[in-house]
Simulated assay, not measured.
Amino acid sequence: MIGIIGIAMIFVMVFGGYLAAGGKMGIILKAMPFELMMIGGAGVGAFMISNDLAGIKHTLKDLGKVFKGPKWKPDDYRDLLCLLFGLIRIARANPVEVEQHIEDPENSSVFGKYPRILADKEAVNLICDTMRSASMNYDDPHQVEEVLEKRIEANQHHALHSSHALQTLADGLPALGIVAAVLGIIKTMGSIDQPPEILGKMIGGALVGTFLGVFLAYGLVGPFAAKVKAVTEEDAHFHQLIREVLVANLHNHAAAICIEVGRQNTPSHIRPGFSELEEALKSVKQEAA
Score class of each variant (00 low, 15 high):
170 A>I: 09
204 G>A: 07
8 A>W: 05
121 K>T: 11
71 K>H: 09
93 A>T: 06
175 A>F: 12
83 L>E: 02
90 I>N: 00
190 G>V: 05
286 Q>I: 10
138 Y>K: 08
219 G>F: 03
213 G>E: 11
129 D>Y: 00
55 G>L: 06
225 A>F: 05
3 G>H: 03
107 N>D: 07
250 L>A: 12
78 R>S: 14
169 L>V: 07
176 L>I: 15
73 K>H: 09
85 F>D: 13
269 H>E: 12
125 N>I: 00
35 E>W: 00
265 N>V: 02
180 A>Y: 02
105 P>T: 05
24 K>W: 02
29 L>K: 10
252 N>M: 08
32 M>P: 04
289 A>S: 12
147 V>G: 09
282 K>C: 02
55 G>W: 09
224 F>C: 10
173 L>K: 11
247 V>W: 01
64 G>C: 01
16 G>N: 06
191 S>I: 01
116 R>H: 13
254 A>P: 02
4 I>V: 12
170 A>Y: 13
206 A>K: 04
273 G>D: 10
270 I>P: 00
259 I>T: 09
164 H>Q: 13
59 T>E: 03
204 G>H: 11
217 A>I: 05
280 A>I: 04
82 C>W: 07
70 P>E: 04
118 L>S: 10
79 D>M: 11
64 G>H: 02
125 N>Q: 11
19 L>I: 15
243 R>S: 14
72 W>L: 03
11 F>S: 04
160 L>D: 12
40 G>P: 10
37 M>A: 15
229 K>V: 03
209 G>L: 04
70 P>D: 01
219 G>E: 05
41 G>S: 09
281 L>G: 06
14 V>Y: 07
181 A>I: 00
12 V>Y: 10
41 G>M: 11
52 D>V: 03
138 Y>H: 09
194 Q>C: 02
197 E>F: 04
275 S>C: 03
42 A>Q: 01
54 A>D: 10
10 I>D: 04
41 G>V: 09
221 V>N: 06
46 A>M: 15
34 F>P: 01
219 G>I: 00
266 T>R: 01
128 C>M: 12
116 R>C: 04
34 F>D: 03
186 I>V: 15
225 A>K: 03
76 D>E: 10
30 K>D: 08
49 I>Y: 09
159 A>M: 12
6 G>V: 09
111 F>P: 10
260 E>P: 06
42 A>P: 04
176 L>V: 11
117 I>G: 09
13 M>H: 00
245 V>Y: 08
72 W>H: 15
277 L>I: 08
161 H>G: 10
102 I>L: 12
110 V>Q: 12
123 A>I: 11
256 A>F: 11
203 I>Q: 08
88 I>D: 10
112 G>H: 08
84 L>H: 08
194 Q>E: 14
177 G>N: 08
139 D>Q: 14
87 L>P: 06
132 R>S: 13
218 Y>W: 03
28 I>A: 02
127 I>L: 12
265 N>K: 13
25 M>P: 02
8 A>K: 02
270 I>K: 03
132 R>Q: 13
233 E>F: 00
22 G>F: 07
51 N>V: 14
24 K>R: 15
157 H>M: 13
220 L>R: 00
197 E>A: 11
37 M>G: 15
27 I>N: 08
216 L>M: 15
130 T>N: 07
212 L>M: 14
84 L>Q: 15
265 N>E: 04
259 I>V: 15
82 C>S: 14
